[in-house]
């Protein structure tokens, strides 16, 4: 069974995105609310706490939990922190695969595969371009 995990650059990208979102929200709070009031403090503290939890706990755990496996019969996607989920898709049911790359993912050389099958869809998020290509080839090889 072949296993694919996410590259470290994906975690870095998530962390950057979380940081930017936190900065943006903090700027909005600073602009909209009156400084020094209890609401102003509450919002900033909540925002800070959420950011710390997300950035230092949730995102690393999520990054570690995501694993994709492929064998002769099926494709398995596992991931999730609070509600871990495993999705098994039989290879014989796979109809076609779509590879999606946005501007940032092209820069980081990562791609997302959307595997469409009769009755459902499985998503292989943010794997390395080369791994995505290999996985695509392997899954198409199983199409009869």
């Amino acid at each position: 069974m072949k296993q694919i995990t996410l590259k470290k650059r994906v975690l870095v990208w998530w962390e950057c995105a979380a940081f930017l979102a936190a900065i943006l929200l903090a700027a909005l709070v600073l602009l909209i609310f009156v400084p020094g009031t209890w609401l102003w403090y509450l919002l900033l503290w909540v925002l800070g706490a959420v950011y710390v939890l997300t950035s230092f706990l949730y995102l690393p755990l999520l990054w570690m939990s995501i694993i994709y496996c492929v064998d002769d019969t099926c494709l398995m996607c596992h991931g999730g922190v609070l509600f871990p989920k495993t999705r098994v898709m039989h290879r014989e049911r796979i109809a076609f695969i779509t590879r999606v790359q946005g501007p940032v993912s092209s820069m980081l050389h990562i791609a997302t595969l959307v595997v469409r099958a009769a009755g459902g869809t499985a998503v292989v998020h943010m794997v390395h371009e080369k791994q995505a290509e290999e996985l695509e080839q392997e899954l198409y090889g199983g199409i009869e």
């Binding site: 109809a95 076609f96 695969i97 779509t98 590879r99 999606v100 790359q101 946005g102 501007p103 092209s106 695509e136 198409y140 199409i143 009869e144």
Partner: peptide
């Protein structure tokens, strides 16, 4: 040889191969 390769999208580029036998 195996199917129709299709590419689309301006910012988010999508590439897909639709096998003939499917």
């Amino acid at each position: 040889e195996s199917g129709i390769r299709w590419k689309r999208g301006i910012f988010f580029v999508q590439t897909q191969l639709i096998p003939y036998e499917k």
